[in-house]
């Protein structure tokens, strides 16, 4: 039973946490792809930028000396999301919109997003250096432990407060996005434009407005994901650059352009990564006596070594691209 809880703490909670981050990022990538038809490579850096915006805001709030029952980094997230949405709009206006107006191919926009990546990275490091920052210098990081009322169970289920908040805010974001896309006029307009941009234009849908709303949502969600990731681990300038590929993998896995697919893809990848590096011999040990004589449980029995954790996402990505580029879920993205 203790081993099972170990499995739960390591693999399930780990998978949910990682999956939430991937899902929040992948939704933004997939929305931008659906509306603007290009792979927005700078999305990971918009996440990092969002994390740093929250960090600065949290520093200001902490300076005011008000005590909060929750991490300050989390309290300021709505404001940071607003700022990040504004920045996303500015980035679009400054670097992508002129290219679109010229009728540039999506590939050109992809290269431009590399330029934006480099600018954001350079600026963040210019201002914040290359060091690591923590949101929990002024307040402690709360750990939750749930003791299970079973006999012989000594190991508690444990997770940190930021992890709990991450999962809660992911659920809220996903539900809100769902209602936005299925109930609101603009949300439906967004789906219409992703479905058939020419017909959307013919229907009189204000495509420029839809583009703006897309950037606002993508920027805000990227900020949320970046901040929550920074709260869970720590804030580094290359925080999200390293997970931009898994995020793309998640978006492609779910079928580029499909918001729900991206969320599912995020969680699939999150679990795939944590389960692939999980040491399965932990779960085999209780059955030591029942196993055949010749079978000796090795000390480590993981599918891949933990150094290759990130590689799992890339391998899945490449296999999906080769076997089913439209994603594992229903739908075609052209």
């Amino acid at each position: 039973m203790n081993d099972l809880i170990f499995f739960f703490n390591q693999a399930i909670i780990g998978g949910v946490v990682l999956g939430s981050i991937y899902a929040l990022g992948a939704v933004g990538v997939t929305l931008i792809f659906g509306i603007l038809r290009f792979a927005h490579f700078a999305h990971g850096d918009m996440m990092t930028l969002g994390g740093f915006i929250s960090f600065v805001l949290a520093g200001i709030v902490a300076g005011l000396g008000i005590a909060f029952p929750l991490p300050i980094g989390f309290i300021v997230v709505p404001f940071a999301m607003l700022i990040a949405a504004g920045l996303a709009l500015g980035i679009d206006k400054g670097f992508y919109a002129p290219l679109r107006a010229r009728g540039a191919k999506p590939v050109t926009l992809l290269i431009a997003s590399i330029g934006v990546t480099m600018m954001i990275q350079g600026l963040i490091r210019l201002f914040f250096g290359v060091g690591t920052y923590s949101f929990f210098d002024t307040q402690p990081k709360v750990l939750h432990r749930i003791e299970l009322p079973f006999e012989g169970v000594t190991r508690p289920i444990s997770f940190s407060e930021p992890q709990l908040l991450l999962v809660i805010s992911t659920i809220i974001a996903v539900v809100a996005l769902h209602y936005f896309l299925t109930r609101s006029r603009l949300g439906k307009g967004m789906r219409a434009m992703a479905d058939n941009p020419d017909l959307a234009k013919v229907s009189g849908i204000n495509t420029k407005l839809v583009v703006r709303v897309t950037w606002i949502i993508a920027g805000a969600l990227a900020c949320l994901a970046g901040t929550m990731l920074a709260l869970d681990v720590s804030l580094k300038p290359d925080l999200a650059f390293n997970i931009v590929l898994p995020i793309f993998a998640a978006a492609i896995l779910g079928g580029l352009g499909h918001a729900y697919g991206a969320i599912a893809g995020g969680f699939v990848l999150g679990f795939a990564e944590t389960l692939a590096v999980f040491n399965w011999s932990v779960l085999l040990r209780p059955f030591r006596d029942n196993l055949p004589e010749w079978f000796e449980i090795p000390n480590t029995l993981s599918l891949v070594q933990s150094e290759y954790k990130l590689t799992v996402a890339f391998v899945i990505l490449v296999v999906v691209l080769l076997v089913r580029p439209t994603g594992i879920f229903k739908g075609a993205s052209t």
Binding site: R185, A192, I205, N206
Partner: peptide, 20 residues
């Protein structure tokens, strides 16, 4: 050709016509 939003319901298609 391509004159409906294939992934949206009939009702939503009509709503899109009234977007303005």
């Amino acid at each position: 050709e391509h004159n409906v939003f294939t992934s949206m319901t009939v009702h939503e298609n009509l709503e899109m016509g009234a977007f303005i």
